[in-house]
Nucleic acid binder design. Sequence first.
DNA 1: TGTATATATTAGTATATGTTCATATTATAA
DNA 2: TTATAATATGAACATATACTAATATATACA
Lengths: 108, 108
Amino acid sequence: MDNNQNQTAFNNKDLDEETLFVVSQTFKALGDPTRIRILNLLIHHEYSVNGIAETLQLRQSTVSHQLRFLKNLRLVKYRREGTTLYYSQDDEHVMNMLKQMIDHACHN
Amino acid sequence: MDNNQNQTAFNNKDLDEETLFVVSQTFKALGDPTRIRILNLLIHHEYSVNGIAETLQLRQSTVSHQLRFLKNLRLVKYRREGTTLYYSQDDEHVMNMLKQMIDHACHN
DNA sequence: TGTATATATTAGTATATGTTCATATTATAA
DNA sequence: TTATAATATGAACATATACTAATATATACA
């Protein structure tokens, strides 16, 4: 039996610390209006940092900070073109959950 | 055309304020380890407040505070039996997202 | 090399959040 | 009514979070 097996497989009552950390961090990323707006933009296509800032009426600094947050969680990635960085989504599963929740919230 | 129609349907670039609030609040609820552990317990069956506290090794007060949080978002409900309140899940969709994310986090 | 543009980083600040202790409330039973 | 058990609430505290202004870094190009 695999030592790295998660507790879900054992149907245990509590979650192991690492799973708990990853899950809470990921949901936390989706738990802020600014990050949701950024990710919602990136559903459709890539954007530069300034592109996001202008579209969402946010400071460049704010966008950059939140992108770093999302990048650390591998929820977004970027490609460089000259001095411009184009950010795009990097976790299809999480993006699907975001879409689901937006639809869930809209169907009231 | 319906005035209450959400912006997702229009494929707009930004989300309306109310959707943004509901979505971020819901994800915020899932963005805390304690609340995740509580909800993860309630996946299987109902628990009393003290039952949760004992199982997860948390203070009664902590559990009660977090249950109020989850109750306000209609993520949990309760039924009374004497002086005991049995809490259970009340949003199948959100619970499914939690399960999905836990599985997602485990499959590393 | 020097300048311009795009982005990242740092430090400061205000606010939000989670936990705890102490206490209040509620319902039951003697 | 009084006592007990279960839960809720309020206040205080420490920590986390998000935003901003100012500045640093990096790339391209003249």
